[in-house]
């Protein structure tokens, strides 16, 4: 697979480490208690189809990327820097 890095252009997937469901961007408020954290830590979506997921460019520039990928075709629909998604408030 090739992942189009927003800063570096198309990069081989072997340069990346996969984390999974981008829901991990939404860490609950610490005051919300263990139930909210249980959901955050243990529950993940694993859809057959469009999936928003986190990839880490570990053997590259160490960017965390939010990749929108079709898990059936591996088509990559969108790639953005995770930190820009967070600061843009669109996560």
């Amino acid at each position: 697979m090739l992942i189009p890095h927003p800063l570096l252009g198309p990069r081989d997937a072997q340069e990346f480490t996969y984390l999974g469901d981008a829901a991990l961007l939404n860490r609950p408020d610490p005051a919300s208690g263990t139930a909210a954290f249980c959901d955050y830590v243990y529950l993940r979506d694993n859809p057959a189809g469009t999936h928003r997921e986190l990839w880490y460019h570990e053997y590259g520039d160490r960017s965390w990327l939010l990749v929108t990928r079709d898990t059936l075709s591996h088509e990559i629909l969108d790639v953005r820097l995770a930190r820009e998604v967070k600061t843009g408030g669109t996560a």
Binding site: T17, L19, L24, L25, R27, L54, Y56, E58, R62, S63, W64, L81, A82, R83, K86, T87
Partner: peptide, 18 residues
């Protein structure tokens, strides 16, 4: 060593980029 840096980068970019 590598895993902790990965986790810290995750925290820096994905949790608290501010």
């Amino acid at each position: 060593a590598g895993l902790v840096l990965r986790t810290m980068e995750f925290a820096r970019q994905c949790l608290w980029p501010d």
